[in-house]
Amino acid sequence: MTAVTYLEAISQAIREEMRRDESVFLLGEDVGTYGGAFKVSAGFLEEFGPERVIDTPMSETAIIGSAVGAALMGMRPIAEMQYIDFITCGFDQIVNMACKMYWRSGIPLPLVIRGPAGGGTHGGPFHSASPEAWFFHTPGIKVVMPATTYDAKGLLKAAIRDNNPVLYLEHKLLYRLPELREELPSEDYVVPLGKAIIRRRGRHITMLTYGAMVHQCLKAAEQLATEDGLEVEVVDLRSLTPLDRETIKESVKRTNKVLIVHEDTLTGGVGAELAALLAEELFDYLDGPIMRVAAPDAPYPYAPPLEMAYLPGVERIVAVARQLAAY
């Protein structure tokens, strides 16, 4: 068994599901002959043929709309957005067509929309998006964002097998990160949607996070342990919808202090909802203000010094955690 990358885990999940279930197919820009902009589907065309690995025109509405039509027929399409930023071009198909379909017609829509999200790769304002809040806010679509190689495969398999639209956000910074290489089980497995995981145990502060920020939080937690003797608990949400309220609340009840960390911008972000949830339901347990570390309320910048200033990193997380600990 060899250790694989986060990207290879995504690739394995799709390939194995396509082998297992003839109703699964992939469509998107450059996914066939080219094997995908990041080579997620390299070799798929040769194995599955052009009817199950469909190179589409540059038409996000047609890609997602066709996926909706195929899902109505009982297929399990995987619609790839070359960069998740371009999901805005197909927004209506998601929020109006797909998200309301089962609710108003009773027809299930087993559909996965996936693509590379997140920053840190000098992608600038149109290739670095964290679009989760728009869809987190929209009823009728599940939203997941894996932080590890194991989860990348298991969550994608669960998403493909789910009978609803699922937005699967893969963080492109993690695609080939050497330290995320992992040996994966040889047997079939899924990571269920809607289950958070505690990545590091602690009793002083709970960090609620997801995606690439999980790794920043883990590094911050390590530094806080070494330098401050603080025991920080890091909760990787994995799924935003459904949200694992139980794991979140159970952790916060033990630590009584919460720091929410996400790469998306601050205002109206996922963290705002988490803060509201905790304020409403765990007010009596809180020994300090609910704090957030997120990107500033500005579009994603290109130049490296701006990008460095924009992305939440270990330094900021540590600084805010210290404030919270001292409260």
């Binding site: 469909i54 038409s59 509405t61 047609a62 997602i64 709309g65 066709s66 996926a67 909706v68 039509g69 195929a70 899902a71 109505l72 027929m73 009982g74 297929m75 399409p77 209506d92 198909q93 109006n96 067509m97 309301k100 379909m101 108003r104 017609s105 027809i107």
Partner: peptide
């Protein structure tokens, strides 16, 4: 709509049903 009888439910955003029609035809 009812897919078993070949009727796709529309939405009010006119034109958006056409890509969906493509998906049904693709299958």
């Amino acid at each position: 709509g009812d897919m078993h009888h070949g009727v796709v439910p529309m939405i009010s955003m006119l034109g958006e049903s056409l890509p969906v029609a493509c998906g049904v035809a693709l299958v």
